[in-house]
Design a protein around this nucleic acid. Sequence first.
RNA 1: GGUUCCAUCGUCUAGUGGUUAGGACGCGGCCCUCUCAAGGCUGCAACACGAGUUCAAAUCUCGUUGGAAUCACCA
Length: 477
Amino acid sequence: MKARTRFAPSPTGYMHIGNLRTALYEYLIAKSLGGDFILRIEDTDQKRYVEGATDIIYATLKEVGMNWDEGPDIGGNFGPYVQSERKDIYGQYAHKLVELGGAHYCFCKHDENESEDEDENAVPVKFDDPCKHIPLSEAKKRIANGESFVVRQNINKKGTSVFEDVVYGKIEIDYDELDEGVLLKSDGLPTYNFANVIDDHLMQISHVVRGNEYISSTPKYNLIYEAFGWTPPIYVHVPPVMKDAQHKLSKRNGDASFQDLVQKGYLPQAILNYIALLGWNPGTEQEIFSLDELKKVFTAERLNKSPAIFDSTKLTWMNGYYIRALEPQKFHELALPYYAKCLTRKVNLEFLSTVLQPRVETLAQIAENVDFIEKLPQYSTALYQNKKMKTDEIIAKNSLALALEVLRGVDVWTNENLFAELKALAEKEGLKNGQILYPVRIALSGKETTPGGATELAVILGKIETLNRINQALKLL
RNA sequence: GGUUCCAUCGUCUAGUGGUUAGGACGCGGCCCUCUCAAGGCUGCAACACGAGUUCAAAUCUCGUUGGAAUCACCA
């Protein structure tokens, strides 16, 4: 049987990290097995629907290169791929399930506030549906009369339900723990549980990958499969991605979504690589993986059982790694929009990119690295004192005057040439390199630390501005 | 509270009876060096606890503790 997995998000807002990781694992399971990855939109809760959310889903998957083989936009043999368009299908199967004895019609009015103001110590009691005992013929009559109803699952079995999970192994749950939940809501739309079973079966999904919060309800799914005489899928329950030891990474709280991270200057590929490793490892010491490489080495058996805390520090490191690995031209292209935001002065941007690339771990860090270029900051002459470089204000003043003279005469304004010239000057004057270069760097930047040395800053700023700033420094001293 | 699940450095993890418990991030140090990075080398740092099984336990069993999930006409 062909491996088929589906990513089935509900369009309730942006794409959060846990969601994306689940999608990744689904994608990888399918692709590592030469199968298909299907996109299905689960919009059965009209109250939570957010306009534009499906576009975010499409855009995100495309951005990281997880292309789907079937989906709402591209179709496929098992459509439609949007649950709200499948309403009739669920209705049919719900009624069929009642006929098969797997469910019953229920006419109880549901209490909206039921699960609310419970006091702390109250032990939830299992709902025992009186409607279960209404004869089918009578129930049908009431429905025909237009009475509002839901379809509720029957849990008739006793004893223990056993199923196998790829990551958790054998799980046993007592049937007594299961409640007879609603399958078809009074608005005629299915609940998540029911829609999933129907769709997964009809779409021939082989591996169901989902959060481990569904472990305890899995026996209910299996009961539905059983009632229909269908074979349940292979279950792959994955632990959550945590914000800290106690809390899941959640949509609320503004925890980082994929979009947020991209906006903060993280590269999609780095994000994907990082989250692949949150709960999975290849069994080797390799950590850097492209999506194609992941496809080759991924196996669901190496998924972890316990939750993983999202560590943005390590993500940042990995992002830096990806940035450094970029073709210089590519980095320059990515940096351009950031330059546009904070630089109006005309400078050597190509060269700036070459010095920045090994120094930033996120694109957003570009701004803090180039601030001095736009405008020389106010600085104290004390900056010219440096023990290791053996400089102070006096030496600096002398060095700057000498450097100014040399630089005036330089026409080939490259880093190599400038460095050679200033080095020669130092030798000629019997000074250490640093005694010339350090003061120049301070004069050009007004900052203690800069991305690049004196001559590199000079190349970035250009000859005119370089001489300008050295003159200013001389005045200051 | 019932039930289910989980537990190795601060974090992500390797490890399936015998290892100096390995790697990565972070942190410290050194080298390189025109500052800062990058790069190279290096150091600190973990088997939650208690019994048991065994010649031998991070690995198996039981218990304790801690944590998570679930118990909706949300997904």
